[in-house]
Amino acid sequence: MPEKRLSLVIATYNRGAKLCTTLDSLLVQTLPQEQWEVVVVNNNSTDDTAARFADYVAAHPQLDARMVLETEQGVSAARNRGIAESRGEYIVVIDDDERVVPEFLERYYSLFESHPEVGAAGGRILPGFESVPPRWMSKYTERTIAGTLDLGDRMREFPEGKFFGGGNHGYRRAVVGRYGGYDTSLGRTGGVLLAGEEKEFYGRLRAGGERIVYLPDAVIYHLVEPERLTRGYFVKLCRNIGRSERRRTRTASRTAFAGRLAAEAVKWAGASVLALGFLLQGTPAKGGYLLIMRWQITAGLLGA
């Protein structure tokens, strides 16, 4: 097989239709096709994902894409399998419910080609709502639901307290050789909404001295279904964010967990002020859901 400089890894689980939407956005990439490949990792899907993918690649032979199976359940295990199966010197990771802009892969490729000092990067994540967002949504709750990440229009190193999103980041293969892959105890597993795998991975790279930059023009739109905009889903999501943070920091050290608890106290102070502001602006539902978010994350963090 010809050498590929860049490999795009997509883990998928029971999202056959969404996966095809993601693949559609890859057909118009500005990076020449001979430079990149797509590795889709089927993480035990029980729907028609495999059949849809087979039909898709048969209809679009110009797309260098293949599917592999990972039987260990979990997005982290699936991504690790994708890395192992890929051929590129540069690895870019997205999710199976996204649309990427035409310049997406070219931006990552150009960055790694022209900046040898950069070990990893993360791009802009914007919401792609499939229905009208509820009135209770603010930019703070949107960030939790859609994973929104927008640090402006210029490339720069990630500031303290920020990290790349799970559905839009990339790195050199050599980075994985130095630090290992994703922690399989973290990240979504089937229908369990755990998270934190990209944050833990980012932390290892940062602690190792890697230069990690924000890439504003590598934009993805995270497709958000109506069911993700319900109170029930929001509560479940936030509780599991707290559980993930508990697992991540307790695994690291007692000090890390204590620091996360202290940070949560600070977040509560900020959320309380913001909720009061929403109340005074006549939008109490936005403040109410901000407090629900904080309460559920705290409960998960404390082991509830």
Rank of each mutant, 00 (worst) to 15 (best):
G119S: 08
R143L: 07
L111F: 09
A65G: 09
T230A: 02
Y171L: 14
F104E: 01
W136T: 02
V92K: 08
Y202S: 06
M155L: 12
K236L: 13
L301W: 10
W268M: 12
F201C: 04
G287Y: 06
E113T: 14
L19Q: 02
Y109A: 14
G277W: 07
V192S: 12
F234A: 04
L23Q: 02
A252F: 11
F112E: 04
F129S: 05
E245F: 07
F201Q: 14
M293T: 04
R81I: 01
R247F: 13
G209P: 12
Y13Q: 06
V38T: 12
E200D: 15
T22V: 03
A77H: 13
R79F: 12
V213E: 09
F234N: 00
S253V: 03
G180S: 00
F278W: 15
A218I: 06
S86P: 04
Y221K: 10
D153R: 11
F201M: 14
P116L: 06
V176I: 05
A146K: 01
E3D: 14
T184Q: 10
F53C: 05
R79W: 11
S86K: 01
A207N: 07
E142P: 05
G82I: 00
Q62H: 13
S185L: 02
V41L: 08
M293P: 03
I297V: 15
W295V: 11
R81N: 07
T21G: 10
L69R: 10
A84L: 04
L126T: 04
R99M: 11
T12C: 13
E197Y: 03
I145H: 03
D95C: 06
E113K: 11
S138L: 09
L215T: 02
R99F: 12
P134D: 04
N240I: 00
A304F: 13
R243Y: 13
L126D: 04
L193C: 08
E142F: 02
S131V: 07
Q73W: 05
R172T: 01
I212H: 01
Y109I: 00
L27K: 12
N240M: 07
R178H: 11
P159K: 00
V39N: 01
E106W: 10
D64C: 10
P133G: 07
V213H: 06
E37V: 10
E34T: 07
A58P: 05
V266W: 05
G191C: 08
V39Y: 02
G123P: 08
G300I: 03
G277P: 00
I125F: 06
R248D: 15
S45P: 02
R294D: 12
G122K: 02
T144R: 12
D64H: 13
L280N: 03
A58S: 14
M293A: 13
R15P: 06
Y171I: 09
A195F: 15
Y289V: 09
E103C: 11
I297T: 13
R239Q: 12
H115F: 10
K162T: 11
S25N: 02
R178K: 14
R87H: 13
V219G: 00
H60C: 10
F234L: 01
I10G: 07
E117T: 05
H222M: 03
G123M: 07
L186P: 09
Y202F: 15
T251M: 13
R188G: 00
E3I: 13
V92I: 11
R188H: 00
E264D: 15
D217G: 05
V75M: 12
V235E: 14
E200N: 12
G288T: 06
L291S: 05
R178E: 15
N240P: 01
E103A: 14
L6T: 07
A262M: 11
V266L: 07
